[in-house]
Amino acid sequence: MRENGIPGSKGKFGGGPAWGLWAWVLQRLTAAVVVVTIIMHLWLTHWAQAGREISFDEVSRRLQSPLFVAVDVLLLGAALYHALYGVRGILWELGLGPQAPRLFLAFYGLVGLSAFIYGLNALLPFVFKISFF
């Protein structure tokens, strides 16, 4: 177990901007975004379906509305950030994964960005009937 709380925060590694603090604030903000968007997401995919089976055509029709696409994209981004922040904290405490601040940001940034792009790609067939990979 390590003593330091927030990875990348001022103190452990000396000066520089307190990114760790902002990362922590963003963790709370994304939590709020996830709460709002996950309720809409679940409502639209379950209750609003009124027991009908989820189908490609049905989802595709719903995702012709930019508002519903925005809900899913917001949920994807916020949930990914929130999840990765949580996982990195757990790994950090166990002494696993990258520990140096620069490598830390690069590693989790890359994982998060790849997952975000993969998630967006999954939405494309519903919205435009295309996908890149």
Binding site: S55, F56, D57, V59, S60, L76, A115, Y118, G119, N121, A122, L123, L124, P125, F126, K129, S131
Partner: peptide, 16 residues
């Protein structure tokens, strides 16, 4: 996300 990604196959038939 992996499950949803099946939508790109067979014009959505794989997803269904």
């Amino acid at each position: 996300i992996m499950t949803i990604s099946t939508a790109r196959f067979e014009d959505g038939a794989a997803f269904d």
